[in-house]
Design a protein around this nucleic acid. Structure first.
Length: 423
RNA sequence: GGAGAGUUGGCAGAGUGGUCGAAUGCGGCGGUCUUGAAAACCGUUGUCCUUAACCGGACCGGGGGUUCGAAUCCCUCACUCUCCGCCA
């Protein structure tokens, strides 16, 4: 979340920045500032009263030690009144803090200067396009038909076991999945990321830390009996590894990678574009996360973008990079690049990665801090990116590499699959 | 799941209800000594809120209670450890 001190001192700037998201912030920002004012007022009163009560208690202690019992009793009688007053003020203060917090978490992150204004996907800025969009013959098949023809993904079977959006990968399909996971993890390790295997169920505090809660409550699967959530992305458990920690400045940059399954309810998103692998409730993803010095975060964002692109190049997939506009960007992000691969048979772009700089928005909630210049504690910056999400990559590979002989496996994956063709 | 023990500063580890934000050791930082380093010695060393600053306030796992006053007593929750049960 945003820092209250920053909002207090930069009201107009905050409002102006949030306009880029089409977020009408005037009312909320003013409310937050008023609540903060109230909170500080109560804090001051409460502190003054506590100081008085403390002084009285100390005095009683002194008198008792000197054996002046009667004098002590006199003060005692007076001091007993503090309790109710203190309780009243403490309650008011707690209520004010709660109200402030409730409003504060409703404010999304401030977009970076370079974020274009816009409403939705159509306003995203194409930063670059790489490779040629393949021209396939007329009888080329979309991946769901290819999956059926070669018996490598079974959507119906998954529906029986669980429900729609939970495919079963079979034979070479399953093996190709495993190959991609290993390839992506190996590449990440070469790029300096340390591999971790985090839990794939998280508690509410973790969900709050990275910003999924309360904003996207309905998008996560919730295990009611234990009050845990299935992760929608490895970002959540991996970034939360550093919740409530003070990082040594010399430990920057912290670079982590993890493979996990991801679970998303995708409530309300049905239609033509969710066929096949396009949108699933469970899918596999390798994620990269960095925790860095604030001065470095935008350089690191570019580095992560280049890294993700290197994977797409290695797989020989035509792709483009988008700079998301204010209206399309996630709640917690300051700047996001989306990478999309060209689905040759569907003739449309598929998002396979999203790389974001959250600046201090997450670390304020997470309390990931370091002691900066002058010995002052300050929040670190967090970033993450998909590297990569598997299903749409698989879709693109199947569609783009289909031939009369079968589907050709990208060269870099052959050492991992052990076969060159799906036929 | 059952029974018991525990949770204190970066770590280890004291702490009779009143000067405890907390002994001591280690670690960290600064200094003396040294050609340099080590050792030794001296000093220093938490976070947060409020404030221009001083002052003040909060924090000894979380929450609540008793009391003029709680790290210390009571309740409750979470977690850790030991034993038993179950189990990939």
């Amino acid at each position: 979340m945003l820092q209250i001190g920053y909002i207090r001192e930069n009201r107009d700037h905050v409002i102006e920045r949030l306009r880029v998201r089409n977020f009408a912030a005037v009312e909320l920002v003013d409310e937050v500032i008023a609540l903060d004012e109230q909170r500080r007022q109560l804090q001051t009163e409460s502190d003054a009263l506590a100081a008085e009560a403390n002084a009285a208690a100390r005095q009683i202690g002194d008198l008792m030690r000197q054996g002046k019992r009667e004098e002590a009793e006199a003060i005692k009688a007076k001091a007993s009144g503090y309790k109710d007053q203190q309780k009243k003020l403490a309650d008011a203060l707690a209520a004010a803090e709660l109200q402030l917090h409730e409003k504060l978490v409703l404010l999304p992150n401030l977009p970076h200067q370079s974020v274009p204004k816009g409403m939705g996907a159509e306003d995203n800025e194409v930063v670059l396009e790489h490779g040629h969009r393949s021209e396939l013959p007329e009888d080329a098949l979309p991946h769901w038909d290819l999956a059926a023809r070669y018996d490598i993904i079974d959507f119906e079977l998954g529906t029986k076991v669980t429900g729609a959006g939970f495919p079963v990968y079979k034979g070479k399909g399953a093996k190709l999945q495993r190959a991609m996971i290993n390839f992506f993890l190996d590449q990440a390790e070469k790029a300096g990321y340390r591999e971790v295997q985090p839990p794939i169920l998280i508690n509410g505090a973790s969900g709050f830390g990275t910003g999924q809660l309360p904003d996207k409550e309905g998008q996560m699967y919730h295990v009611g009996i234990d009050d845990l959530y299935l992760i929608p992305t490895a970002e959540v458990p991996v970034t939360n590894l550093y919740r409530d920690t003070i990082v040594k400045e010399s430990d920057f940059p912290i670079k982590l990678t993890a493979y996990t399954p991801c679970f998303r309810r995708e409530a309300g998103s049905y239609g033509a574009h969710v066929r096949g692998l396009n949108r699933l409730h469970q899918f596999d993803k390798v994620e990269v996360v960095q925790i860095v010095h604030p001065e470095k975060s935008y350089k690191v964002l570019e580095e992560m973008s280049v890294y993700v692109q290197s994977l797409l190049r290695a797989l020989n997939l035509p792709y483009r990079v988008l700079r998301l506009c204010g209206g399309d960007m996630g709640f917690t992000s300051a700047l996001t690049y989306d990478m999309e691969v060209w689905s040759a048979a569907q003739k449309r772009w598929l998002e396979v990665s999203s790389v974001s700089n959250f600046e201090a928005y997450q670390s304020n909630r997470l309390k990931v801090r370091f002691k900066g210049g002058g010995g002052k504690m300050q929040p670190a910056h967090t970033l993450n990116g998909s590297a990569l999400a598997l299903p749409r990559i698989l879709a693109a590979i199947l569609e783009d590499n289909q031939t009369e002989k079968g589907i050709r496996i990208p060269e870099v994956l052959v050492p991992y699959t052990g076969f060159e063709w799906i036929d």
